[in-house]
Nucleic acid binder design. Sequence first.
DNA 1: CGATTCTTTGAAAACAGTCAATCTGTGTGG
DNA 2: CCACACAGATTGACTGTTTTCAAAGAATCG
Lengths: 191, 191
Amino acid sequence: MFKSFAAYLVEKAGLTNEELKLVEDVTVVKKLRKRQYLLQEGDICHYNCFIAKGCLRLYRIGKDGSEHILRFAVENWWMSDYESYNSSRPSKSNIDALENSELLLIEKQNLNALFKAIPKLQIFKERLETKNFDVSQNRILSNISETAEEKYDNFIKAYPEIYRRVPLHMIASYLGVSRETLSRVRQQYAR
Amino acid sequence: MFKSFAAYLVEKAGLTNEELKLVEDVTVVKKLRKRQYLLQEGDICHYNCFIAKGCLRLYRIGKDGSEHILRFAVENWWMSDYESYNSSRPSKSNIDALENSELLLIEKQNLNALFKAIPKLQIFKERLETKNFDVSQNRILSNISETAEEKYDNFIKAYPEIYRRVPLHMIASYLGVSRETLSRVRQQYAR
DNA sequence: CGATTCTTTGAAAACAGTCAATCTGTGTGG
DNA sequence: CCACACAGATTGACTGTTTTCAAAGAATCG
């Protein structure tokens, strides 16, 4: 299962075999069943997590008990609650599996050591962070400027894979509209 | 005018006098009149910009010509279009001054050199980026989960200074509601 | 099959957006 | 100093969208 992670690291960050060894030494394999938690509100997030297989979501619970999805992640994406991870404070979020999943965990300290030891990896991480930030900004723009239909439309164009695999009501939660509205929007859309 | 920047760097990043010299050597002072652009759509953003005095906004223009504000910034904040800055591609955004402002610009290459030369500065930058990301995530949560009234309420609690200085219709644009709605929300709020 | 999850639909109510008009305060130029 | 223009804020009436609630119809899974 480390293989797909290794392939990813070679392709995206150009790691050598020796460097892959270093990574492998500190990665922990974890399997999650559908609906199982990777992280629960109140936990401290000690790991960054690479998804070898499956699909996860990160969400928060509102005062009224409603779920608000901040992020989805599938194969070859990273998932972690960065706020808790970086601050080492209890998380306000939950992460759980939407499908049976195979994950590779690396503890924060070990990962930081890897960044020191493998400059290529550090640079790759920075590129990822930059991209994540851009994505966030564009999502904010979408939130404040688009209609429900445009949000839906852009979502399925940007993330067709996620659209295919995730229940509609969760996409509604991610977009910030009710499931009924999204269901109706989609009717219109299928003209 | 470099003084307030120096004070900031000492307080926040713990720079020494020698290090401040290095910074001063590559900072360029710029004054902006109210309504003047710092960056226009299509420009490439070559600078990161520290605000010594005044207030700026970063916004995008929608297809229908409407303005959508992504960020405000006041004294001791940084402002730049990070997407264009990092990618060296033409910006999709505009930055302009909401008040007469005094800015300190550092060119990207010079700033990167400073990060290399002054590890403390690099670490400080990373802390800032982390915080910016957290703020973005929380704004997304606000966007998808809160009512107009809650958004308004939380905005004035989180940014009383900006609330005091920026016209209401721009806060409406930032929050993603119409100015009329925000005006009415505020009536309710003043009970 | 039976249970659960997910999606759709309808009708009513709440909400937000638009348009148009008015009101306010500020600042500029004659 | 006044008149005027301009940016900003507010209000009312109307329209349109979204949410909510309730119910029922698919789909999935053990």
